[in-house]
Simulated scan of single mutants.
Amino acid sequence: MAVAGGPQVVGSGVCAASHSNVSAGFPPHLQAGAMRRRFWGVFNCLCAGAFGALAAASAKLAFGSEVNVAFCILGIIMMATTNSLMWTFFSRGLSFSMSSAIASVTVTFSNILSSAFLGFVLYGECQQVLWWGGVFLILCGLTLIHRELPPTSKALPHKQQ
Rank of each mutant, 00 (worst) to 15 (best):
F120G: 02
S91V: 10
S104T: 14
S115M: 05
V129T: 15
W87C: 11
G119I: 04
N111F: 11
W132C: 05
A101E: 13
F136V: 14
L94Q: 05
L113N: 04
T88S: 11
N111I: 05
W131P: 01
F136H: 05
G93N: 02
G124R: 00
W131H: 12
L144F: 12
V105L: 15
V135L: 06
V105H: 04
L118Q: 10
S100E: 14
L130N: 08
S95C: 10
S91G: 13
S114E: 01
I138V: 15
L85A: 08
F136E: 01
A103K: 01
F120I: 05
F120E: 01
F120H: 08
P150T: 08
L137N: 00
N111W: 06
C140E: 08
G134W: 06
E148Q: 14
T82D: 03
F136N: 04
L85Q: 09
L142F: 04
A80D: 01
F136W: 10
V105R: 02
E125C: 01
L137F: 13
C140A: 14
G134F: 07
M98K: 13
T143S: 14
L149R: 14
L85C: 14
L113F: 09
N83Y: 11
L130S: 13
I112E: 01
V121I: 13
W132S: 02
I102R: 15
F136P: 05
S99H: 11
Y123E: 12
S100A: 14
